[in-house]
């Protein structure tokens, strides 16, 4: 690891100034992707701007049927939060299944969403729950936020402050995890709210995506059986030494059924 300067601002103003003013700087959340990348010398920023001391970026609150989670909230805190468990249980169980305890004790929701790893869990929930990504500059709807492989709507220097999740009437997340990395080979989040259904898939392709055919079928009947015969095309799905594209396509249906079954448990 090359040496770098570490800045630890305590206000958003200071943070923006550092990100804009310090050459070759990067924001540091939990560091679960960034630090290994630096250790492997694949990245060599001159400065890291640690976001952990900014009050607006932490904490979990509930108001007007919306659950707001500060970007620097760790996975373990989401998993163990009584508020999250009671309002959107799928988020708590999703967080409890990320990586391993070491990752959950450091990794943050904001870091995960900003990184948009194609196999990360949170993007599926953010997209299916139709969450709002709140940054230091604006509010971005989930559908406009994710733009494929590690790409998001975030502009240079823009940082996520919080995620706002509308509470659904039902929702579930099911993940087929890699036995090696514990990332999602395929993860499906299915959410029902006010008669509308959103189904988001992570892991299967180069970025999180929705499955319209499943959403339509589930709006007719919110049951696993309603989507049992719906197959996504393997054409644009990922293929690697653990899972080929056809298998991933098959798993999307299998995991979607499990997600619906989990959602029905919460009704």
């Amino acid at each position: 690891m090359r040496s770098f300067a570490l800045h630890r601002p305590s206000t958003l103003y200071e943070t923006s100034a550092l990100l804009g003013g310090v050459a070759d700087s990067m924001p540091l959340a939990g560091g679960m992707t960034l630090l290994p990348t630096i250790k492997q010398r694949l990245a060599a920023p001159a400065a890291l701007i640690d976001l952990s001391k900014i009050p607006q970026m932490s904490g979990i609150s509930f108001k007007d049927d919306v659950l707001t989670i500060g970007a620097m909230t760790r996975h373990v805190d989401v998993a163990e939060s009584e508020l999250v468990r009671s309002k959107i249980p799928l988020l708590a169980s999703l967080a409890a299944g990320i990586g391993d305890p070491a990752v959950r004790n450091r990794g943050t929701i904001g870091g995960s969403v900003a990184n948009n790893d194609p196999s990360a869990d949170y993007p599926a929930a953010v997209l299916a729950l139709d969450a709002i990504v709140v940054t230091d500059r604006r509010e971005i709807a989930a559908d406009a936020f994710f733009r494929g492989l590690f790409e998001t709507a975030l502009e240079p220097g823009e940082i996520i402050i919080a995620l706002r999740f509308p509470v659904p009437s039902a929702g579930g997340y099911a993940k087929f995890k890699s036995p090696a990395s514990r990332y999602a080979v395929v993860g499906v989040c299915a959410v029902k709210k006010a008669g509308k259904v959103r189904v988001a898939v992570t892991g299967a392709g180069p970025g999180v995506f929705r499955v319209g055919a499943m959403e339509a079928a589930l709006e007719g009947s919110f049951t696993p059986a309603a989507i049992a015969a719906i197959r996504v095309s393997p054409e644009n799905l990922s293929s690697d030494i653990h899972a080929d594209a056809e298998y991933r396509a098959h798993l999307v249906t299998v995991m979607a059924k499990k997600a619906i079954a989990a959602a029905l448990q919460t009704l």
Binding site: S178, P179, A180, S181, Y183, D240
Partner: peptide, 15 residues
């Protein structure tokens, strides 16, 4: 291609 624990699956206690 299986050059790290991200891709080389070691057996774990929960297996």
């Amino acid at each position: 291609l299986s050059g790290s624990f991200m891709d080389y699956t070691m057996p774990r206690a929960d297996h």
